[in-house]
């Protein structure tokens, strides 16, 4: 963990940006939209729409789960792309990189701090959706004991705990993408280009994941376990997908963290 004032300062900087709050509020609005739509059209479950949607009217906690599920393919990767793509390229584009490095900060430390801040954003984003979902779900629907996918029932408090676990799982799922973003961010001085490239890669990985012809590739895609959080809604919890996902994301962090360092350590700062 990179200690020191730099990390706290960078973290404060992240949450002082209007952009960060705009993204977090947009993410937080997703469960609200879902809940309002379900409330206004409440009728018998149709069986269509995103997973868990039909359970919202029965238990408000499922608003959070549905919200997270809906945000995984596009909204979450998009916001993470913005933050991760901006890490180094944003500083370079603004010219502040030369002053940070001569203040001085070692390049390895700057990368570590920037990545840690991006990781905090991943967690903030998923927690935002979870909290907003729990809040609006409790406001518009009843919250009670949760019936899990395995058929058993747990208390509402334990249900909230499960939602927290899912938020953590998804934040973990995004760490590989954030590492990829950090690397791409060291390649350019144009932050917008880096952000777009990261977002495109997130979409491409998901498309590749849909093609059965590429079965051999799927275990290596950082998106492979993105939707596997349903295992956390069983009793007892099946931790295997958590473990596999952590291993995969860790691998991405190792590879792209190393590449980012290799690139950044020797890069001439001419911006």
């Amino acid at each position: 963990m990179p200690s020191s004032g730099l990390f706290l300062n960078e973290l404060a900087l992240l949450f002082r940006r209007r952009r960060t709050w705009a993204m977090l509020l947009a993410l937080g609005a997703v469960p609200v939209l879902i809940a309002v739509a379900v409330r206004l059209t409440s009728g018998p479950p149709s069986g269509r729409g995103p997973a868990f949607l039909d359970q919202i009217a029965g238990n408000g906690l499922f608003t959070a789960v549905t919200g997270l599920f809906v945000c995984i393919p596009l909204f979450l990767p998009l916001t993470v792309s913005v933050v991760a793509g901006d890490t180094i390229a944003g500083e370079a584009g603004a010219g502040t990189l030369r002053y940070l490095l001569t203040s001085p900060v070692s390049r390895a430390k700057l990368l570590a701090v920037k990545y840690a801040v991006a990781a905090v954003f991943c967690l903030s984003a998923t927690l935002m959706i979870a909290l907003s979902g729990i809040g609006i779900g409790a406001a518009l629907f009843s919250v009670g004991p949760v019936t899990l996918l395995s058929g058993s029932t747990i208390s509402a408090a334990a249900g909230v705990g499960r939602v927290g676990l899912i938020a953590l799982y998804i934040a973990l799922s995004l760490l590989g993408l954030a590492a990829l973003g950090l690397f791409i961010s060291t390649l350019t001085d144009a932050p917008v280009g880096a952000m777009a490239a990261v977002a495109v890669l997130a979409i491409v990985a998901q498309i590749l994941g849909q093609l059965p012809q590429l079965d051999w590739l799927h275990p290596w895609l950082f998106t492979n376990h993105w939707l596997d959080f349903a295992d956390l809604l069983r009793d007892p919890i099946s931790w295997s997908s958590y473990g596999q996902n952590a291993l995969l994301q860790g691998g991405y962090l190792l590879v792209f963290g190393t590449l980012a360092y290799g690139r950044f350590a020797s890069k001439g700062i001419v911006s």
Binding site: S4, L6, L8, N9, L13, L100, S103, P104, V105
Partner: peptide
């Protein structure tokens, strides 16, 4: 300025 000073590990906070 606070940001740049905080970046310097050797500066006294």
């Amino acid at each position: 300025l606070v940001r740049l000073d905080a970046a310097d590990r050797t500066s006294t906070s």
